[in-house]
Design a binder for these strands. Structure first.
Length: 440
DNA sequence: AAAGTTTTTTC
DNA sequence: AAAAAACTT
C-alpha cells in the first residue's frame, strides 16, 4: 500500500481478504502466515531463522512511494545475494520497447493457461511465536453498517459468477448510469486491484460463458474489451509514471495552477450545488464506488468548471476508490482533466448528464437528502426555484459554486487554445509514439 | 487496435 | 474535400 494514497477503506478491504485466505487454508491444514510490516525490517529478522534464496512477487505498477520502496528492496536483496523474481501481471510489460503489438500480445496472455498453484509443494517452516506476534495483523473489526464491498477471494468469485450468470444482461445499457450500473457492472474492480481475482482468470471465465450463452456474446465481448482497456491504461502508467505529478503534455503547465480551497472543499463534501455531482460524491464516499462515467464527470467538473489543478484532487479520489489502481487512476484523471494533450478535451455538462443518466432523479434523491421531496424538474436544477421557495424547501442545500456555462466556455477556450499550439502538437506526436498502440 | 466522432465552415 | 469547431460514449 502506498502511504500517500492509503485510506481506511483500502486497509479494511485488504485485511478482510487476507483473513479470508487464512481461514480457507486453515481448513486444509495449512497455516498461512499473514504478516504486516515494512519489507526490509521484516526480512532482516526473518533471515535470522531461515535461509532465503529467492523472493517471488508480482510486478507492481505502483506510484512513486511504492516505486521507491521497490528500489530499496531491490538494492537490499542484491546486497544479501537473494534473487528477486517478479512476475508480469495482466499483460503489462516493464520496460516495454514498442506498443505496436501490445493488444495482440495482451489477448495472447489472457489465453495462456493459468498458473497451477496446486502443483506447489510446501514444506513446514517453524518460526518462534514472539517473531510472528511482532508482525501479525491484529484482528480487524468489520463494521456491519458500512456499505463497502466485502473483501476476499470468495466474495470476488461470488461477484464474478453473479455477473456472468445474471447481471451482465444489462451491462452495456447501464454502464453509464449511476444507479443501474451498481448492479449491471461487474463490480470486480476491487478484487482485481487487490489481487483477489486475477485478470486472466476473469477473462477466461468470460470466454467460457461466451460458449455457454452465445446470445450474450455481445455483452460479454464488450466486457472483455473493458478488461483490455483496464490493462492498456496500467501499461501507460508503467511506461510514463511521471504522470502521477506532471501534466503529460507540459504545454498545460502554464494554466490552472491555483487552487481554491473553498471550491475544493465543497466538491469533496458533495456540496457544489449541482445535484448529480453532489449525489455522486456522497455515494462514492459512503460506498467506495461510483461508475466510470460519473467518475469522469466528477473530474471534469472540478478541473474544467471549477478550474482546479488535477493534482489537488487525485490523492483524495484515490483514498475514496475502494478499487484504487494507480495505473488507471492517473492516466484517467489526466485524460478527463484534458492535460494529456493526445486525448480530446471532454467537458461534461453536469446538468445534461443529470437529465440523461438519472432521468427520474432517483439517484439524486437517494443521495442528496435535501432534494428528495422536490418535483422532478427542480431535482435536476434546484436553482430554478424562486428564492422564496428555495429558502422554504431546501434551506440547507448550497447555491451552485460556479456558473456552469461561463466556466465551461472559459475552460474550453484555454485548453483548446493550448492544445492547438505547435508546441503541444509536436509533443503529442512524441506521446502518441510512446503511449499508444499505433507507434513505431 | 489513437478511450474521437459528428457537424459546420471554409476553400 | 479538407479543416475547424462543437460536442460526446
Amino acid at each position: 500500500m502506498a502511504a500517500s494514497d492509503s485510506s481506511f477503506i483500502h486497509w479494511r478491504f485488504a485485511a478482510q481478504g487476507l483473513f479470508d485466505l487464512k481461514q480457507a487454508l486453515k481448513k486444509q491444514g495449512i497455516q498461512l502466515l499473514v504478516l504486516h510490516a515494512e519489507f526490509i525490517e521484516f526480512f532482516e529478522r526473518l533471515l535470522e531463522y531461515v535461509d532465503v534464496k529467492i523472493v517471488y512477487s508480482h510486478c507492481e505498477t505502483g506510484n512513486q512511494v511504492s516505486f521507491n520502496r521497490d528500489k530499496h528492496v531491490a538494492a537490499y536483496l542484491k546486497m544479501k545475494a537473494v534473487i528477486w523474481k517478479e512476475y508480469q501481471r495482466d499483460g503489462v510489460v516493464r520496460r516495454l520497447k514498442s506498443r505496436k503489438a501490445w493488444p495482440a500480445n495482451w489477448y495472447q496472455t489472457m489465453h495462456n493457461s493459468l498458473f497451477a498453484s496446486a502443483s506447489l509443494k510446501f514444506s513446514e517452516l517453524r518460526l518462534p511465536v514472539p517473531f510472528l506476534n511482532a508482525f501479525e495483523i491484529p484482528d480487524f473489526p468489520i463494521d456491519d453498517k458500512a456499505r463497502f464491498q466485502p473483501g476476499g477471494r470468495q466474495n470476488g468469485l461470488k461477484y464474478l459468477n453473479s455477473f456472468l450468470q445474471e447481471r451482465v444482461v444489462g451491462y452495456v445499457k447501464h454502464i453509464s448510469k449511476p444507479a443501474e450500473s451498481r448492479r449491471s457492472c461487474s463490480r470486480l474492480s476491487p478484487y482485481l486491484a487487490w489481487g483477489m481475482l486475477s485478470m486472466r482468470e476473469v477473462y477466461q471465465a468470460v470466454e467460457r460463458q461466451k460458449k455457454l450463452q452465445p446470445e450474450r456474446r455481445f455483452q460479454l465481448k464488450f466486457f472483455q474489451e473493458r478488461l483490455r482497456w483496464h490493462c492498456h491504461f496500467i501499461q501507460k502508467f508503467e511506461t510514463e509514471c511521471r504522470m502521477e505529478f506532471h501534466n503529460l503534455n507540459p504545454v498545460f503547465n502554464q494554466v490552472r495552477t491555483q487552487t481554491n480551497e473553498r471550491i475544493l472543499e465543497a466538491w469533496k463534501a458533495g456540496a457544489t450545488g449541482f445535484p448529480l455531482v453532489d449525489a455522486c460524491m456522497r455515494c462514492l464516499k459512503a460506498t467506495g464506488y461510483i461508475n466510470f462515467r460519473m467518475r469522469a464527470m466528477l473530474v471534469s467538473f472540478i478541473t474544467h468548471n471549477c478550474w482546479q489543478p488535477w493534482q489537488a484532487i487525485a490523492p483524495y479520489l484515490a483514498q475514496l476508490f475502494l478499487d484504487y489502481e494507480p495505473g488507471i487512476h492517473y492516466p484517467q484523471i489526466q485524460m478527463q482533466a484534458g492535460s494529456s494533450g493526445t486525448h480530446i478535451i471532454r467537458t461534461y455538462d453536469v446538468v445534461k448528464q443529470s437529465y440523461k443518466q438519472d432521468p427520474m432523479g432517483n439517484f439524486i434523491r437517494l443521495w442528496v437528502e435535501e432534494l428528495k421531496d422536490l418535483p422532478l424538474a427542480f431535482v435536476h436544477e434546484p436553482w430554478k426555484l424562486s428564492r422564496e421557495d428555495r429558502m422554504k424547501s431546501i434551506p440547507s442545500y448550497p447555491e451552485p459554486v460556479v456558473d456552469l456555462k461561463q466556466s465551461r466556455q472559459f475552460a474550453q477556450q484555454e485548453l483548446w487554445g493550448l492544445k492547438k499550439t505547435k508546441q503541444a502538437k509536436e509533443y503529442n506526436q512524441y506521446l502518441l509514439n510512446l503511449l499508444t498502440n499505433q507507434g513505431s
